[in-house]
Amino acid sequence: MGAYILRRLLYAIPILIGVNLLTFALFFVVNTPDDMARLQLGAKHVTPEAIERWKVEHGYDKPLLLNAEAKGSEQFTDTIFFKHSAAMFVFEFGKGDDGRDIGNEIRTRMGPSLAIALPVLVIGLMVNITFALLMVFFRATYLDLWGVVLCVVLMSISGLFYIIAGQYFIAKLWNLLPISGFAGGIDGFRFILLPVLVSVVAGIGSGARWYRTIFLEEIGRDYVRTARAKGLSEVRVLFRHVLKNGMIPILTGVVVVLPLLFMGSLITESFFGIPGLGSYTIDAIQAQDFAVVRAMVFLGSFLYIIGLILTDISYSWVDPRVRLQ
C-alpha cells in the first residue's frame, strides 16, 4: 500500500508540471505582462515607464519560457515561468498582484469554505441517501413515482434560483436568517444555515436520483434475496446490506471531492458573502491576477490528485476484494 501511494505521488509531479504549463500558456495567450500591468495600474495617467516599473517589480520583465540571452541553465530558470512556478512545488505561492500573501489568503479562506462545504456534503449525503432508500423502499408505488418527479423538478431548476428564492423567502420575507454575511465562532452558525440549507435542497434532485439508481441495481442482486429469505426486515435489508454494497459508487463520487471542499463554491460564496476560496478564485480571474489563478489551479490539481488516491484507498477499505499494488 505504501509503495502504491508513493508511486502515485511521484506520478503527480509531472501531472502538476503539465497543469502548470497549461495554465501558464492559456493565461499568457490572452494576457501579456503589459496587459496585466495596465489592469493593475488603472486607466488613468499610465505611462510606458510605469508599466515597465510594474513589470520589474512583479517579475514579469523576463522572457516567458526561454531566456535566449542567458547562459546555461539560466536560459530556463531566468524566465517568468520558472520564477513564478518552481516555488509552488514547496507550496510557496508568493504574493498576488495586490501585494497580499497568497499562502496566508488560502489558509484564512479555507475555513469559511469548509464551513459551508462540509455540512453541505454531510447533510446532503444523509438526506439524499435517505430519500433514495425511501424511494427504493416504495419502489413502483405512487410515492416512488412522485419522488422521482420531484427529483426531476428539483434538478431542472437553476442553482441560482434556489439561492435567490432562499434569500427572498427565508431572509427577506420571513426574516428568519441573515440574508448574507459571515462571522467566526458560534455566531457564524446563523450565517451558514441559509447557504447550507439552500445548497442541500439544490442538490437533492440529482443526488437522490443517482443514489436511487445505484440502490435499485443492488436491490435485485442475489444477496438481497438471500437476506430477505433469512427473514430480515426491509429496513435492515436496505440500510445494512444494500447501503453497504452501494457504497463503492457513492465513495467514488464523495471521496474524490473531499479535498476539493477546501476550494469552496463559486456562486454560493459570492451570493452569501462567504469569504472563501471560491470567491477568491473568481476575483483573481476577473482581476487577471496570474499569481493567484496559478496558485489556485495548482492547489486544485494537487487536491484532485489527493482525492483520487484517497478514492483508491477507500475502495480497498470498503471492498476487501480490491487490493492496491
Binding site: N175, L176, L177, P178, I186, D187, F189, R190, F191, L193
Partner: peptide
C-alpha cells in the same frame, strides 16, 4: 439545541440581524 442557539446567538429580537 444547536439550531436554537444559533438562531438566538448574537442578536436581540431580529433573527436576521447580521451584526452582533
Amino acid at each position: 439545541l444547536g439550531l436554537s442557539l444559533g438562531l438566538t446567538a448574537g442578536c436581540s429580537d431580529s433573527l436576521n440581524h447580521p451584526y452582533p
